[in-house]
Each structure stands twice: as structure tokens, then as C-alpha cells.
Design a protein around this nucleic acid. Structure first.
Length: 590
RNA sequence: GGAGCCGUAGUGUAGCGGUUAGCAUAUCUGCCUGUCACGCAGAAGGUCGCGGGUUCGAAUCCCGUCGGCUCCGCCA
């Protein structure tokens, strides 16, 4: 059975060598007495020539795509005029002496031989037969990249004295704020395990255990609706360090990322990464994970309209909100018609804006529905932003976060609409200085922005009770090309602070003890100051691979409804299983 | 929970009120010794996602439904 070479390895230097190859028939070309087969394995393809009349070669004319065969033969140089630049092995071919069919194969449900671009094949069908899909080198490549990324992570962190520790998958509900996946416990009727949304509390307790530097490639589970960059089970690189401040964590992560990108892709990224405070990210880009590879920054127009006669702008400002503008200069502004503005407005509205106002420079003044409301001072200020005929300014006035994010959504949409160039390379960015708490729309109280173990800035501690919204967190997100690929913080390591945090979240002592008693207990016994980060590994690999969705970098991904098209999970449980767990299924009433 | 886009031979698509539902490719049969998306000749292959409606007539228009994708909500 053993092969002497892989298909992709053969070169002119192997001329004359006797070889044994194993692989799949990518395509067979039967010329009658002569049969050519492109033999494929993970490493590549090689052309095999078979004389159909030879005694030792039986059934060459019957070979079909995706059959698995063993070839014994001799490597030889192809005639000069017949060398193929398309294949890495194109200078040579293997003249078969023995053909063994190891497996026949049905005609595949979609082409896997590279004759059709996979992006053109229905994704559901590809996922249903993912083992076939992955035979295509372009489909396999992200998995190989992912392997190199993880290997590089291990190399680097091991060298930096980190210890890999595994944490349980069957555990207790963790406080990340998402819906849990629950697993009924047979031995404890009425009780459930929860699958971890992250190893957060375990890694903190590992710090309390004195591990000091921990990491794990950790599976995490969140039962929320999916997106192109969200799967219900996903992988984090989880890191936690003791006796560190924020710069220690960021600096280590930058060096780690540098090593990973170099080892996995061969490209150099420049250090250190830019840092952008959350407030600035929102003001300038309308996003807490801005894509900074193109301009089109938002303009802060609060001062311009502070005393405006235009109520739709001034009223939000009076209520503590904001007015943001997006200026489109001459060459691009001309491409944006009223119809396009309507499309952009739909986008802004989807992100919470009530509308998208606009003015266009016309001579010394402005045209557009709201131009008649502009006062002299406003005209002067806007004219400076839009000096040329036809220049366009789009506005959203609303609550600060809505004004920023709605116009931020317009910004990214405009980029693709106008096909504005994107700076090449990887745009890594730290977003820092997040608020600790955020208004909870539902309850009217406060909720955590990161998670309830995030350390407040020491200077802001007194504000925790007086003015919770003003407390800054020592928290940071890592952003790459407009995607959040990591997030972390320093953690609370003092019991009294943790209790005040819970109180600020409206959680009384009884509830805190019920949910996190074991953790509060742990905080009593000498917890080191610590902090860390978690990388969204799937997302990082997706971006490094240039893939469009997470599904391309996961071997067996789920679709948008959380269904695995291959296994058709989730499946119904049978009666005996339910009985054993003490469960009954209620018919859905609605 | 909401919005948008998409469902036509195995696959990719055309057709947008009257077609024998077209094309390419794959498949099957025959021929073929230098192909490489081999070529040539022929054949078979369709519940136009499903249900209802409008119409003399529906793949085509309308409503519903199921499925897929993208986005909002949600997810630090």
C-alpha cells in the first residue's frame, strides 16, 4: 500500500524514478488506446499516462472522477511542447505500469475537480457533502492555514512560559450574557450542565491557583442567532496572565500576532498596533470595530448645530445626543444620486436612525431638502467641509451611539458602493478605554459592556455608585479590517470591588452568591491581579484566509439556523433518552 | 422577532403570461495513442421548492408556506 511519493512532490529531478502513488482521480481523459488521469492527493496533482492495451493495466478506460486508485509506474519528462504550467508537477508525468482500483465512486453531486468555481455551487449542497467539498484544494487551504496558526500559537506561548490547561465543557452557566446551551444531567434530575460561553471564570481561578500564565484553544458555545462571522460553537484562543497591567497584555499579544501571521502566512505586520479610544472610534468611524483601511471619516458637528434653528438637529443635541456628518467630495459625490441617498437612508434607518439628511454644495449655497433650515453660521461651517460644487454632506442626528453607528453603517456601505480602494495588508487596531457599564434598555438599569469581572479604572472606583455610566473599564478589543477578533480586560481581583460591581449591576448578595458563590469564595483566598484576552480564532483565520464566512474555515460548520447540513443535527431525541433524562417534549403552542 | 435577496435536469444557468422549458457541463453509449475543462457522434435526464389564487392559459403575475444566504434585533 505504501506510497513512495506524494502527487504534488514530483519534479523533473525525479525523472526515471519508479514510484507508487495513492490518490483520487481528479479527471480522466480517455483517448482510446491511451488514457490520461490527473491523480490528486492533499499535496497536489500529477498526470498519469496509461496504455490501455498493456497487460498489467486493466480497467483504465473505466476510471471515473473521484475513484481512489494506486498507481505504480515510472516518472518521465513530458515532451517539451507538452509541459503544463498549470500544474506544479507539469514538467513530468508518471507512466503507469500497474493500476489498482481501491474504491469506485458515484458521480459527485457537484464538481470537485476544479472545473467549476466552488463559489458558484450552492453552499448548502457543499456542506451536505463537506467531505467532497474539502477535496478541492481551495476548500482545504483554510484548514491547513488554521493548523499553522494554532501551531504558531503553541510555539510562541510555550516559549513565553505559558501553560496550556483544559477547562470543562460540561459546566455551569457562565456570565457572558448570551443564551446558554444546556445539557440535562441524568444523575441529577431537574438539573442541567451549561456548555461554556467562554472559560472566563475557570481561567481566573487558574490565576488564583498560581498558574500565572495560561492559554487554551478553547471551544465556546453561545445560543444566539448566527451571522456570516458567528457560529454557535466556535473557538477562542484564551489567554490569562497574572501580575500584569494593560500594556503587558497588549504587548504580548502584538508579538504573538506578529509571530502567528509570519509563521502562518509568511507576511510581516508592523508593530505596535495603533490604539484608538472607544469614544474616538465611534466619533470618527461610527463603529467600535472600525475598518481603518479607507478614509471617509465622520465629522463631529455638535458645535455647528448647537444653537441651530433646525429642530431635527438641535433637539437631539439638547437631549445630550449628537450630530454626525459624512462628507463626500467631488469625484465620489457625483456618483451618489438621490436614489442612492434613499438606499443609504434605508441603511441608516436599519441601524436606528430616524432618517438621513443631506445637503449638496450648489454655488455659494447648498441644495437639498434641509438646506433652507441652515443658518449663516452653519452655512459657513459646512461650506468649509464641502468647498467644491457638488460636494455632498450626509447627516444623522440622534442619541450619540445611534448617530455614530447609523452613519458608520452608511460609511461602510458607501465604500463598497463607490468601490473605494482599501489599503492593502492587515489593519490591526486596539480599541481601548471602553466604558465599564452601559444602559440596559430593557430594565433601565446598568449592564456590563464586557463582562461583570472587568476591572474599573482605579481612579473611577468612587463613581461606581455615584455615576456608573462614567466609569471607565480597563478593557480592550483587538480589531482587524473591521472585524472584532479579540477582546479582553484586566479583572477584578478584590472581593470588595467585585461585590460593588455586582451591586452596580443590580444584583443583590443573594443572587450573586447563588450564581457566583464559588467564585466569590475563591476571591477570599489571595487572588493575584490578573488580566487577559480571548481571540476569536475562527474569525482571525477567516480574515487571514481572505474567506467570506466562518463556514469556510471550519471543517464541519453549521448553517444560519444552527443546523449541520451534513449530519442534520440537531435531531429529535427518542423516547427512551427523554425518559431517562426525565424530560417531556411539549408541542409548540402559538 | 423583523427586513432584503434567491429557489428551473446531477451541477451552473436562460426563459419573466401562450416555447416540445433552451444552453453549458456532468452522466450513459460508440469512435479515438499525446490529452490536460481532450475531441467527435448519439442518447437519456425537469413535480420549474411546495400549496392556493388570478387567467381561456402560469416556470412567468398575486398570496401563503418551506428552504438557503445577507443584514437588524440578539451576541461583550
Amino acid at each position: 500500500m505504501r506510497r513512495t511519493h506524494t502527487c504534488g512532490a514530483l519534479r523533473a529531478e525525479h525523472d526515471g524514478l519508479s514510484v507508487t502513488l495513492l490518490g483520487w482521480v481528479n479527471r480522466a481523459r480517455d483517448l482510446g488506446g491511451l488514457v490520461f488521469v490527473d491523480l490528486r492527493d492533499r499535496t497536489g496533482m500529477i498526470q498519469v499516462v496509461m496504455d490501455a492495451a498493456a497487460d498489467t493495466i486493466v480497467g483504465a478506460d473505466a476510471l471515473r472522477s473521484e475513484w481512489v486508485v494506486r498507481i505504480e509506474g515510472r516518472v518521465r519528462l513530458r515532451p517539451v511542447e507538452q509541459r503544463s504550467a498549470r500544474l506544479a508537477t507539469g514538467d513530468v508525468e508518471v507512466e503507469a505500469t500497474v493500476l489498482t482500483v481501491l474504491s469506485e465512486a458515484d458521480t459527485p453531486p457537484f464538481p470537485v475537480d476544479g472545473s467549476v468555481d466552488a463559489a458558484d455551487v450552492n453552499e448548502e449542497l457543499r456542506l451536505k457533502h463537506r467531505y467532497l467539498d474539502l477535496r478541492r484544494p481551495e476548500a482545504m487551504a483554510p484548514l491547513l492555514l488554521r493548523h499553522r496558526v494554532i501551531k504558531a500559537i503553541w510555539e510562541f506561548l510555550d516559549r513565553e512560559d505559558f501553560v496550556q490547561v483544559e477547562t470543562p465543557l460540561l459546566t455551569r452557566s457562565t456570565p457572558e450574557g448570551a443564551r446558554d446551551f444546556l445539557v440535562p444531567a441524568r444523575a441529577r434530575p431537574g438539573h442541567v450542565y451549561a456548555l461554556p460561553q467562554s472559560p472566563q471564570l475557570f481561567k481566573q481561578m487558574l490565576m488564583m491557583a498560581g498558574v500565572e500564565r495560561y492559554f487554551q484553544i478553547a471551544r465556546c458555545f453561545r445560543d444566539e442567532d448566527l451571522r456570516a462571522d458567528r457560529q454557535p460553537d466556535f473557538t477562542q484562543l484564551d489567554i490569562e496572565m497574572s501580575f500584569v497591567d494593560q500594556d503587558d497584555v497588549l504587548e504580548l499579544n502584538e508579538r504573538l500576532m506578529h509571530h502567528v501571521v509570519r509563521a502562518a502566512t509568511g507576511t510581516e505586520i508592523s508593530l505596535p498596533f495603533a490604539r484608538l479610544p472607544y469614544r474616538d472610534a465611534m466619533d470618527r468611524y461610527g463603529s467600535d470595530k472600525p475598518d481603518v483601511r479607507f478614509g471617509l471619516e465622520l465629522a463631529v458637528l455638535d458645535d455647528v448645530f448647537a444653537a441651530s434653528a433646525f429642530n431635527a438637529f438641535r433637539a437631539p443635541l439638547d437631549a445630550g445626543g449628537a450630530v454626525r456628518g459624512l462628507v463626500l467630495r467631488a469625484p465620489h459625490a457625483g456618483a451618489v444620486s438621490r436614489k442612492t441617498i434613499e438606499e443609504l437612508e434605508a441603511h441608516a434607518k436599519q441601524h436606528g436612525a430616524k432618517g438621513l439628511a443631506w445637503v449638496r454644495r450648489a454655488g455659494d449655497a447648498f441644495s437639498g431638502p434641509i438646506s433652507k433650515f441652515l443658518g449663516d453660521g452653519e452655512m459657513v461651517a459646512l461650506a468649509a467641509l464641502a468647498p467644491d460644487e457638488g460636494d455632498l454632506i450626509l447627516f444623522v442626528a440622534d442619541r450619540w451611539s445611534v448617530a455614530c453607528t447609523a452613519l458608520g453603517a452608511v460609511r461602510t456601505h458607501l465604500r463598497s458602493l463607490l468601490d473605494l480602494p482599501i489599503a492593502p495588508g492587515h489593519a490591526f487596531l486596539w480599541v481601548t478605554d471602553f466604558p465599564l457599564l452601559d444602559r440596559d434598555e430593557a430594565s433601565g438599569g446598568w449592564t456590563y459592556m464586557h463582562h461583570p469581572f472587568t476591572r474599573p479604572e482605579d481612579d473611577d472606583l468612587p463613581l461606581l455608585e455615584r455615576d456608573p455610566g462614567a466609569v471607565r473599564a480597563v478593557a480592550y478589543d483587538l480589531v482587524l479590517n473591521g472585524h472584532e477578533i479579540g477582546g479582553g480586560s484586566l479583572r477584578i481581583h478584590r472581593l470588595d470591588v467585585q461585590r460593588r460591581m455586582f451591586a452596580a449591576l443590580g444584583m443583590d448578595d443573594a443572587e450573586a452568591r447563588e450564581r457566583f458563590g464559588f467564585f466569590l469564595e475563591a476571591l477570599r483566598f489571595g487572588a493575584p491581579p490578573h488580566g487577559g484576552i480571548a481571540w476569536g480564532l475562527d474569525r482571525l483565520v477567516m480574515l487571514l484566509a481572505g474567506a467570506r464566512s466562518l463556514r469556510e474555515v471550519i471543517a464541519f460548520p453549521k448553517n444560519q439556523r444552527g443546523v449541520d447540513p451534513l449530519t442534520d443535527a440537531p435531531a429529535s431525541a427518542n423516547r427512551a433518552q427523554l425518559d431517562e433524562l426525565g424530560l417531556t417534549v411539549r408541542e409548540r403552542v402559538s
